[in-house]
Design a protein around this nucleic acid. Structure first.
Lengths: 340, 340
DNA sequence: CTGAAAGCGCTTACAG
DNA sequence: CTGAAAGCGCTTACAG
């Protein structure tokens, strides 16, 4: 009567022990209202005695749902994505969903297969390139997903971003207000919406005040520490009075380079980043930056995703685009340009 | 003949299209040698035409394997674990395994159920407490797991750690060599093997040279930035000439506090951390620290785990314990005590 | 080399 | 309220 040693008990074992049928066990443990209190009690008791744990493998084959959400991140060494993962994990856990972390394959088709192999109910895409065909293909196949912090033009899918153009304008207008005219910029990759839009916003705000960036005073590069470090060293050659970095990781790379040259911030040089990752607030940095509310972005994104998963067999929801407002966080790396 | 619109094709659809049986499709796509080249070609063709993707849900119910490994981390905001996750992810990806990130529940039984519900082939436990009953219980149930960077006394399971006692002695002996006698320490939690063993090693090395820590000069606390910051401020009251921090996150918290007091490192104060996370090497810090080779730890851990998973239905492997050697990374926060 | 049958462990109509 | 039957989509002996 008891399950053979070494084998995990199944609902059949519980059924036998409780003297009911296997489907009744399934119903009782899911608190199906169509089960008498007495039966429910009996089943729960038997399950507890056997140490029964419901098999997600069996369940998911039947329900076509795994309770697993993929989070696609290409840059796992980036502290920004650590904060994203941390926040996403907690948001999913609240709905008893589990987080699977995926890195894109070199081969788009292989990666697509990993997303569509039935182990995921949906996915959160965080590092998508503007030219990626993947989201459109996922949408075509009806796979639930949401783009977080990145967008793709004319995509038929859900997106949640902070307004990068507006955020970069905020930074530029602060520099102008302080009186900076010799301005430098470390822009991000044009292959990403964040890189592109922050550059667009920054340049536009300057242009509306009659300022264009000198060639020696701007660069484009990856969203990483090394680019910020190297880029800043290059920009310093042309002695700008302020530098805007496309994100905080780049800004902190720049910060390190600037410090290594014994240049004082903000007295000799102003530095403004973007994101407001937790490092930015540390006293060694006290980085002035444009804040993206990661918590809000994650909440809105997961909400949209879960709604879409809920409708997956019904009438599909229209694509939605949520745009959140950035704010300027004034810390201690910005100030007026040095006199003279 | 073609699958109805909106439904994903299954191996049955492929079989019908290729004119073979469903099991033959299964064999052909798995490159079973018992399939003729012609049949294999036919099946592959049909699969490609239909855009067939093998369902992991069906597969895993049958094979009792999901290809998913759980990584248990309680402190997802900690940069050390970002590096662990990044490294684990890549190590698993090499074996086509996927990484599920889990945070322990408040309730041990509930968490156990999440590990044992059949969605994982095994787990890597990274933040286990010394008193946790979980690993012993997992071992008892034959669930494959490995402890990474933490140990539990007399555990019947696999473990991979860096020798914390030896590492802390390395730090202490460097301080002594430099001539420090007024020594402070920010130890980690006694509830963890890393916290406990680094404290043991550090104290032991000092003791063997006739030095004990004054009560005002040491603290115990969590492995986080805030403790490092606050703890350092407290230690500074008693003017030590050197501070050892139980890990780099604590050390960097301390660094920030020390800098906020305008105390120069290493001229006025020496600071040594533990771990060698990537932040430690940044020029703003240049933190001298005891290096743990995360890459090696992850390689050895995953190797042991995969071997154990491979044996899961056969003769179980004996528990193994791999201990790696720490090394001192000399950067720019250590030096002799200030004269006078 | 290939197919028919059984089974992995659940859930979900369908009867009663 | 409960059970018998079918099915989710694979893999794996077992025949032939």
């Amino acid at each position: 009567m008891s399950p053979s040693a070494g084998r995990r008990p199944t609902s059949h074992d519980v059924a036998r022990r409780a003297g009911v049928s296997q489907p009744t066990v399934s119903r009782a443990l899911r608190d199906d209202p169509n089960v008498s209190d007495e039966t429910r009690r009996l089943v729960r008791e038997a399950a507890a005695e056997l140490g029964y744990i419901l098999s997600q493998r069996g369940r998911s084959l039947s329900t076509r749902l795994t309770g697993q959400i993929g989070v696609v991140v290409s840059d796992l060494a980036n502290p920004f994505y650590l904060e994203v993962l941390d926040t996403v994990h907690d948001a999913l856990a609240r709905d008893e969903l589990r987080m699977l972390v995926l890195t894109p394959d070199e081969d788009d088709d292989a990666f697509m297969a990993r997303l569509l192999d039935g182990s995921l109910d949906g996915a959160i895409l965080t590092t998508t390139f503007l030219t990626s065909q993947l989201p459109a293909e996922l949408a075509r196949r009806g796979f639930p997903f949401v783009l977080l912090n990145r967008e793709i033009d004319e995509l038929e899918g859900d997106t949640c971003v902070v307004d990068s153009v507006a955020g970069a304008r905020l930074a530029a207008s602060e520099l102008l207000r302080l009186g900076h005219r010799e301005i430098g910029a470390l822009f991000g990759p044009m292959t990403t919406s964040t890189g592109r839009d922050r550059e667009i916003g920054f340049r536009r705000e300057l242009l509306e005040h009659g300022i264009t960036l000198e060639a020696a005073r701007w660069r484009r590069g990856a969203f990483d520490f090394a680019y910020g470090h190297q880029g800043a060293l290059e920009l310093l050659e042309s002695a700008p009075t302020a530098i805007f970095a496309a994100n905080d990781v780049v800004a902190i790379g720049a910060y390190n380079a600037i410090r290594s040259r014994a240049i004082a911030m903000p007295d000799d040089l102003t530095l403004i980043g973007f994101d407001d990752i937790s490092l930015a607030a540390w006293n060694v940095f006290e980085l002035t930056t444009v804040r993206q509310d990661i918590g809000a972005m994650v909440q809105r994104s997961t909400k949209m995703l879960l709604e879409r998963i809920g409708r997956r067999d019904g009438v599909p929801l229209p694509p939605r685009r949520v745009v959140l407002d950035p704010t300027l966080v004034a810390r201690r790396t910005h100030g007026p340009p040095p006199a003279g």
